[in-house]
Design a protein around this nucleic acid. Sequence first.
DNA 1: AATATAATGTTGCAATTGCAACATTTATTG
DNA 2: CAATAAATGTTGCAATTGCAACATTATATT
Lengths: 207, 207
Amino acid sequence: MENICVFDTLFEENFLCPKMYKKSFFKGQNITSYVENRKQICFLKEGCADLIRTDFNGDVTTLEYYKKGDLFGELFYLITSNTQLNVIAKEECEVLFISYDFLTSKCNRICKQHNIIEETILNLIFKRMIILTNHIEILTKKSIREKLLSYFSTMAFQKSSKTFTLPLSLTALATYLNIDRSAMMREMKYLEEEGFIKKEKRKITLF
Amino acid sequence: MENICVFDTLFEENFLCPKMYKKSFFKGQNITSYVENRKQICFLKEGCADLIRTDFNGDVTTLEYYKKGDLFGELFYLITSNTQLNVIAKEECEVLFISYDFLTSKCNRICKQHNIIEETILNLIFKRMIILTNHIEILTKKSIREKLLSYFSTMAFQKSSKTFTLPLSLTALATYLNIDRSAMMREMKYLEEEGFIKKEKRKITLF
DNA sequence: AATATAATGTTGCAATTGCAACATTTATTG
DNA sequence: CAATAAATGTTGCAATTGCAACATTATATT
């Protein structure tokens, strides 16, 4: 959250840096197409957007969902020749485009706040890295039960509480865990019957 | 590879920076224990090491294998109170410890090569990010067949060839894909019988 | 407020996948 | 160069999990 504030302040000050620029998009517009080696980092200052992959045979998949404060860009994805990656605005969006070398090179006094932004972006990158590692950790559990308990314990740790509300719909959670939704519901029921958890809608309590 | 060279050169020059230091380890020694919020990045200049997790009930798991040129450190892992993460040297190792703010702050003329190293580390971080994203991509495939074909096509893309040699043992590959090894072998046999691939030991050809 | 759309919840059945248990080949180590 | 350990390869069987198909409840939309 504080990350967003930094950018807010800078824009209020009419901050401009030669290595970055801001642009607005309407719902449905293509924000960016991932290009190999361009190394552009995008920061979603306002709105929400989807990362869409189009296969060589035209199949379309939604890979990620971005919301206010998220980073995206080809830097995070392996670009292969037979697929296309696009980020599409789901509503009105404001996006900050930052060139990769913004993070390494300095541009002196023109950008007095360069360092603050650099640190902000690096923090977002590291946060994302931890999220990715944790996702892998959960995906590599063998059973549905283990996946659920692993996800739940991460949630409980983050919220510092045995009781928490799922930030995703159960449908989205099943997708995140890469399991069938109905099989997940069944396992949740068993977990409740066996006294491992308590569940009311999306509110979970661990025991 | 060029990343390693940068560091090699710098050490030959007896390069020293207040924000980083070098240390050597014998086989079996603990290189680092992950500490929440310390934000220390470690670069394995020489040797190989394992990331080991010890559960609250004493169970030990090897989470990752690091080799010359890899990055590690708590920056990449979510630290929870009930597990411990340690990196143990598997052979004689040389490790470069870099404080997180090395990447954001500058230390003027003492480190004339600061920028080069900064860029090197950032490149490693981005490379790792892409690897993680790709791993998730593969892990979220529904069937063993899809996982294998997805992994193979990534390999073929990286090697720019329909024929390539697996960089992992088949046992390690099964672990990476989070599937049973014997089930994987069976699926590979079917893929070969159905003419999707050709396989001689670890040499795979896609059709 | 009415309707459409999405999310939640449940269950039987089929099948992909994991497990066990083995043989055989290749690496590693004293 | 033995001897041991690790990796590869194979198969039958069990079971976890996915799928289909449905009812019910929330949420959006006009």
